[in-house]
Design a protein around this nucleic acid. Sequence first.
DNA 1: CGAGCATGCACAATCGGTTGTGCATAGCGT
DNA 2: ACGCTATGCACAACCGATTGTGCATGCTCG
Lengths: 338, 338
Amino acid sequence: MVSDSSSKRLTIYDLARLAETSPSTVSAVLNGTWQRRRISKKLASKILSLAQSEGYSANMQARALRRERSGIIGMILPLYDNRYFSSIAQHFESEARRRGLFAIVSCTNRDPKQECEAARMMLAYRVECLVCTGATDPDTIAQMCAESGVQSINLDLPGSKAPSVISNNREGARQLTHAILNRLTEEKRSDDPVLFIGGRDEDHNTRERIAGFKQAREEVGLATAEENILPCDYAADKAQAALETYLRNRSTLPSAMFVNSTISLEGIVRGLQLNGYYLDDIIFGCFDWDPLAAAFHPRLMMVRQNVIEMIDRVFELIDTPPRDPQLLIEVQPEIMGV
Amino acid sequence: MVSDSSSKRLTIYDLARLAETSPSTVSAVLNGTWQRRRISKKLASKILSLAQSEGYSANMQARALRRERSGIIGMILPLYDNRYFSSIAQHFESEARRRGLFAIVSCTNRDPKQECEAARMMLAYRVECLVCTGATDPDTIAQMCAESGVQSINLDLPGSKAPSVISNNREGARQLTHAILNRLTEEKRSDDPVLFIGGRDEDHNTRERIAGFKQAREEVGLATAEENILPCDYAADKAQAALETYLRNRSTLPSAMFVNSTISLEGIVRGLQLNGYYLDDIIFGCFDWDPLAAAFHPRLMMVRQNVIEMIDRVFELIDTPPRDPQLLIEVQPEIMGV
DNA sequence: CGAGCATGCACAATCGGTTGTGCATAGCGT
DNA sequence: ACGCTATGCACAACCGATTGTGCATGCTCG
């Protein structure tokens, strides 16, 4: 290992000098096209072992520039702070790696401005494709990508200008609601009200989940009072406040709750603890999955979105871009703890 | 917006043609050096508005190649799946952004091979600095970076070949243990055994935490039996199995437990629930922080590592690289729920 | 023995910016 | 009118890889 005194990194020109050959030959050997270019096996292995021993590493910027392909695939993500988004990032990364792509992920804090800024950076780094996860404004980003000739795909929340892969929120919510109602029936409390809490009214997923919730109740002959639907935003504090307001107006605790995310669940649980309620009495269904929470509460059922399949679908769309930009793929989530 | 028919992206050469000037002038204007290069304000604003209206975006690969600076800063991370690592990634990203750097983060699943592979990729993309978080083998990576002339910094777990920023694990554990012991005293159970469980014997942080645990007990005159120290690995299953084995050999549950991470806590809680124990009787101290878990258990105290300060320290080291490669910076964590 | 082909490699253009340098022209002072 | 500086910009050489093309040399075959 000859650590170059200049501390500059080795290039194919340096290797060419060392191997007494030309840069183009070195390049051909190092990127595997040497057979096609009729480089002798002898010279090839000489160059390869030299590259190895000198610790050569190709300059990806130069390669990307010349090839007009960066080898980078981008994702924007609201946050990392729950298992759902974390595992999305993780699977995206490993799947990208498997395909020889380098994944870069940017958190945008559910802020449309940051989303745009991140998308702009990714486009500047010439990502070959951009996956837009849970974006507040996916269409703007799809538009930006289209103008740069870059493919984009929406994940988790659908858009209208690029194909989307999302969970089947309505069906997941329907099944979760049925699971809740079944528990209530087992406990002879089938007529008790169930509170739907958390999420945003404007957001596609919340609307679908509310629809699934109502549908399930209807299927067992129950009407749903609007006062029991509280899309108070996802944030823990908002959920906690909404719950406390709700409780102030009535004498009894609901026997069961459909909570729209783990972050909302955090506020709910905190609020109940602070107000001295006994948690284990309540049946929880949470449209989200967290194994630690599941371990804590014996009657907490959770919806685990099928992240692996969602990411698979995303890459299928990347491999064979659909004609229809409005294509919507729904993936079935799984109900845990039933 | 003239969407180029060729669908190729605009370059400074295109802009130069449109503005009837030279590429070098366009470049100077777009990267802000035009005053120094005595370009007239008039021409500058013409080029700027043209770039704006045509949606020009500089090719970062080309820029990086010429400038010999990628503008990229890298981080390798074991996982995203807990709040600690997630927030590390998030703060790293936003701090990098604030400094005009583009952050790329790779998950390596605590696998030394993946760590090396990720580091190699990052070096190939010519990161200007690599932050190595919770690496199983930080020194190998530090070595790779050094050979490429790239600065590297260890985070969370220390190494000997690059400066490190970690939590003060011993002091955090000492304080957490005191908090546990105080609770026990309040409840007149101060002589009950406390179980330390989770983590890896070989890992620096676990060793320090065990030391802090023992020290705190010693400070109140308690000896620590080795049978009550179970560094059974972090994984939930391992922790659950270790706990079940432990319980099989004695008649009573420990009144309190020091659990070495939320992932271990998951296994512990699950094991206790499955075996019919009443969780709320137990005092938990967990060297990790998860607000949802904290909401669930009224007697769960948690150590929240000061991620913001740790990331700040990392960037200070990047700004002014220390002479001593063995420099170790310890950041005080906070005890939550006392 | 010479045409023709295969073999093995080097040359040089190129990707899109950046930056040192040089060359006109204008303005100014004497 | 002449020299001098300041102004405003263009030229061209890079950065490090990729790739179309071309040129020797050696070998085969009629």
